[in-house]
Amino acid sequence: MTSAIEMVDVIDEPKAIEGRSPFSLALRRLRKDKVAMISLVVIVLIVLMAILAPVFAAVTGHPPNEQYRDIGLTPDGLPRGPNGTFWLGTDDLGRDILVRIAYGARISLLVGVIATAITVVIGVVLGLAAGFLGGITDTILARLIDVVLSVPFLLVAIALVSVTGPSLTVTVLVIGCFSWASVARIVRGQVLSLREREFVEAARSLGAGDRRIMFVDVLPNVIAPVIVYTTLLIPVVIVTQATLSFLGLGLPPPTPDWGGMISESQNYYTTAWWFILFPGLALLVTTLAFNLFGDGVRDAFDPRADRT
């Protein structure tokens, strides 16, 4: 080591502001956001409810698909309101709504997470490829994105499910295959400007290939918007799944799921308010919690909107 360098070390300019990774900065902001934290607690509770669904069944003694046509229905064959045995009442077949809601949470969360994950992975990879590789790849992918975004999603989803028959896999695939395009468009837009940045050229000058540059250099720079989009996508997916169920294209009965329960309750809403209220509330609380949390995540990653 030469003396010049050592000397330089001593007189080096003052340090730049002590910062953290953009990620941990966002995390810190998020932690200070009360609404987001409360929403997170609610989300955790819903997840717990889904995981502990068998416990609900064990404690009440009512398996989710068991029909109590004697004690669960009025003599006229109508659902029973909340009482000591059926805390949240029963449905039209005399099943325990509370237990079914707990089991329904599994479906909503499972679809929400898996379909979102598929969506984001496809969207990020294709968006990266389109934006970074450019040329013919981009032309084709950009048209494909246009196509998917122009198709009336719900109509085609309904049509597809009616052709293939309803199942969890089909629901997840249909949602995943139609939602990736918005992610891809966001990512592509970001990558288009990122690829002109000097650090990409620096990587190239070191001998990095396209794939490495895409995933090691460019990808970390699009993570923030992707995270924001992902948290806001989960509730949308949950609603979509419930909507398909509501239209009779969810899961084959008797599997409990929220959209299906609400659909079944339609004929009883004049006589059994609990039948629609509790599943509806479960669905609403879930999407609201995810949306509020997602909103907090967005503000945490892009605090600009709150600066005055």
Partner: peptide
């Protein structure tokens, strides 16, 4: 207002429709 907006944004459209029917029609 933000909360108000997000609240309705979180509604599945069929649920909101059914609730409106329940209260404002039924």
């Amino acid at each position: 207002l933000t909360l108000f907006a997000l609240f309705f944004y979180s509604f599945p459209s069929f649920l909101l429709g059914l609730l409106l029917l329940y209260f404002l029609y039924f």
